[in-house]
Each structure stands twice: as C-alpha cells, then as structure tokens.
Amino acid sequence: MKMPSPSRRTILLGGAGLTVVGAGVGGLAAAATLEHYLEGLVRHTFRRERIDPEGVDLFVSEFIAHADPGTISKSTLLARAAGVVGVAGVDAALSGYGGYAEFKRRLVTQFLLNSDYFYRSDASEPVHCLEWTGVCVNPFARFNDD
C-alpha cells in the first residue's frame, strides 16, 4: 500500500477531543437533522473504531456539499425516520434494500477514503478525517515505477 503524501496526510482538527464512540447509539434516536443523521450513521457503522468526532462533523458537511440533490432528498427522509426509531433502527430495518445499501455504501466509502483509516499503522489507532479531496483518492494504487 502506498503511503499518503504530506498533503494527503494533512489532518484537520487532528487530535482535538478524540472520543471513544462505543456500540451504544441509543442516544442518536433523536437524530432529526440531516447532519445529525449522517454523523450518527458514520458513528454507528464505525462503532468499534475510535474516530475524531469533530472530524466527522466536517466530513458530513463536505459530504452534503458534494452530494447530488437525489441523495440529499433521500437521506433527509432517512433522517426523519431516524428521529423516530434511531439511526441503528433505520439501518437494521433497511439493510436489505438496494437503494439504502447503495446510499450507505457511498457514505462509508467517502468516509474511508477521506480519512486516514487505511493509512494507520495500527488498526487500534484513532481515525482522523482528512481534507476532503476529489482527486488522487485511490490509496491502494501501485505504479510501474513504485
């Protein structure tokens, strides 16, 4: 695996107030806004990881800014549902549906590739969000002159 370039490694809000987010997401049942819902879904998906909470906020802002109107519309509906049954509840109820799976896949992929998840030397290290980038995002690429 290629190591990230220094700019890629630029960590926003690095180390600021790292919080261990455990498996319990019951507190997210009140998620109503789109931002809270998406943050909750990231935390729920990576509930066994230590992730930088402020970085998640920033990641969600960027995700929303770059998302197409269809994604925003659908995830707004999901946020409303999450306000009733919680993020975990929505995730459990819709996990078998193609449209939801595709949405979650996009979110998770963007989070993974816009964080240092794959660059950590140890999987127990906390995950930091990186500067949002639309380019040079394949951390696994190998080149003939490598």
Partner: peptide, 17 residues
C-alpha cells in the same frame, strides 16, 4: 475498473477491497 469510489468499497469491515 480500478476506481474505489464508484460505486464504492464493500461495506464489510476487513473486506472493504
């Protein structure tokens, strides 16, 4: 295709790729 962005990685920890 060698693009991890579209439609995305596999949503399964440890099996992303």
């Amino acid at each position: 295709e060698n693009n991890p962005m579209i439609p995305g990685l596999r949503v399964a920890k440890g099996r992303w790729r």
